[in-house]
Amino acid sequence: MTTAVRWPASARYEDAESNAPGGLGFVQDLLNTASLGKPRQADLLDSVESARQWLDSSFAVLHQVDPGAPAAPDDLDADGLRHVLSLRDDLRTVLSAHPPEGPPSGAVAVSVPSIETTAAVTLGAGGARLRPQGAGVEAVRSYTLIQLVAASYGGTLRRLKVCANPRCRGAFYDRSKNCSRVWHDVSTCGNTQNVRAYRARLKERGLSSAQ
């Protein structure tokens, strides 16, 4: 079921059909704070001020879909922003490391970072739950990884993808039945890549015939 909320970063590139469900939508929104699209949108983590504005907006949406989520950091500084940027970059690297269609021919091996955090496990009438730990940016990090763990066990993590077009790399949630979507937007990213590949094949044939 598609949520009707509009995540501030992801809404610049996608409609609600491509929103990840629940708290996983926040992870997608974090990834989409980057400068993506054509024309390029601004990087929402370019400064402490813009990062604070995004955090406030994104957490307002998050609390609509997950009232138990931690509060947005209210003391973000330059060091905290550096940690948020590092988390965003590491997440993109991890999600890009093993695309569903397999590594492209001639691909260079990617060093996948290990993202770590702390979380509390509570056991109650509803079963076991992971709860974020820490304050400020560390709570954001803890919540983000909890959402990824939950999605992994729930079988939905494979649907959170990064566009296969290296000039895009936008994050999207693949709702296709067989989870086969690889492009952020097939009409732009897909066509661009297909045209580029076609021209490369023509160039290669031309070189081969000239030999």
Rank of each mutant, 00 (worst) to 15 (best):
F172P: 12
D43K: 13
A119G: 07
P21G: 04
S111T: 14
Y13A: 04
G25P: 09
R6Y: 05
P100N: 07
A139Q: 12
A72S: 10
A69N: 05
D15Q: 13
L123F: 08
A139D: 01
C168H: 14
F26Y: 13
S176F: 11
G80D: 00
L45Q: 03
A72D: 04
T192I: 02
G126S: 08
V137L: 06
D75H: 15
L44W: 08
S114H: 15
N19K: 13
Q133D: 04
R181C: 02
H83N: 11
R88Q: 06
Y143S: 04
G190A: 10
L91E: 03
P70C: 05
W183Q: 07
G206P: 08
T3V: 06
A11T: 10
R205T: 02
A34N: 14
R40S: 08
T117R: 15
G190H: 14
V195D: 02
A78C: 01
P103I: 02
Q147W: 13
E204N: 06
V48R: 14
S176T: 13
V195N: 05
L31H: 12
R175N: 02
A135M: 12
L55A: 02
Q64S: 06
L76Y: 09
L81Y: 08
V137M: 07
G23Q: 10
L207Y: 09
R52Y: 02
D74E: 10
T188I: 06
C179K: 14
A171R: 07
K38Y: 15
K177L: 07
A151R: 14
A9Y: 12
F172I: 00
R82D: 01
R129M: 06
V48T: 09
K177Y: 08
A72E: 03
L148Y: 08
D56Q: 14
A151Q: 12
S10E: 02
A78L: 05
G126R: 15
Y143C: 02
I115H: 14
W183T: 06
C179Q: 07
V137C: 05
V65C: 03
V112E: 03
L91A: 07
A78T: 12
N165G: 01
D74V: 13
D56E: 15
G190R: 15
Q28L: 06
L95C: 04
P67R: 15
A11L: 05
A60M: 03
G102V: 01
D89Q: 07
A69W: 11
E204K: 15
A11N: 04
A20L: 03
P39I: 00
A4P: 09
S176M: 03
W183V: 03
A139K: 14
